[in-house]
């Protein structure tokens, strides 16, 4: 239990460092702004209580906001995503997943399942984030383009990250 908790904290710190020091410095175009720190919320165990997921999302967003100096922006997006995650898993995950503490990963659930899962929630997160960032519907289609291209790129990075770092969970 303690080891599990420590792994999650280590993963959290690692992901934030990766986001801030590597991904943020990619600076490809203004249309591709990937956010990979959400992998932390995506990879929480399936049977974790929804309110704990919400609290974790809240703190993840708070930490990111303090680094981006955008109060409430990432917080709102991660909470929105954390809430949708519960809904999504109730539909997409089967009973055995809820009984064992399996975490939604490529190794445990297969690549197609994970792709759909990651893409849906990443889109939800980016949708909230980018629209509240612009704070208007004046640039509706441009924002929509930014959302889809960034989400696709984020999912690509997330899948690469999963394949590189999360493979070991299969042994459990």
């Amino acid at each position: 239990m303690i080891i599990e908790l420590l792994t999650y904290i280590a993963r959290f710190v690692l992901l934030i460092l990766l986001q801030l020091l590597v991904v943020n410095n990619l600076e490809l175009t203004t249309y591709i702004n990937p956010f990979i720190y959400i992998i932390f919320i995506l990879s929480l165990p399936v049977n974790m209580k929804p309110w704990i997921v919400l609290i974790i999302s809240f703190f993840t967003g708070l930490v990111m906001d303090s680094f981006y100096s955008t109060p409430g922006l990432h917080m709102g997006a991660t909470i929105f995503m954390g809430y949708l995650r519960g809904f999504y898993l109730r539909i997409a995950a089967n009973k055995e997943d809820f009984e064992t503490s399996v975490s939604p990963s490529i190794a445990d659930k297969g690549i197609v399942w994970f792709l759909v899962y990651a893409l849906t929630l990443t889109l939800a997160h980016h949708l909230f984030l980018f629209f509240f960032e612009v704070y208007s519907f004046f640039e509706f289609f441009r924002t929509l383009l930014r959302i889809t291209s960034s989400a696709l790129f984020s999912v690509l990075l997330i899948v690469i990250g999963e394949l590189l770092f999360f493979k070991k969970t299969k042994t459990r």
Partner: peptide, 19 residues
């Protein structure tokens, strides 16, 4: 769960709006 979600989301939108 929904009430907690609603409260947290309201909180973040309010500080976002204020800022």
């Amino acid at each position: 769960t929904f009430l907690l979600f609603f409260a947290l989301e309201m909180f973040s939108v309010i500080i976002l709006y204020r800022y």
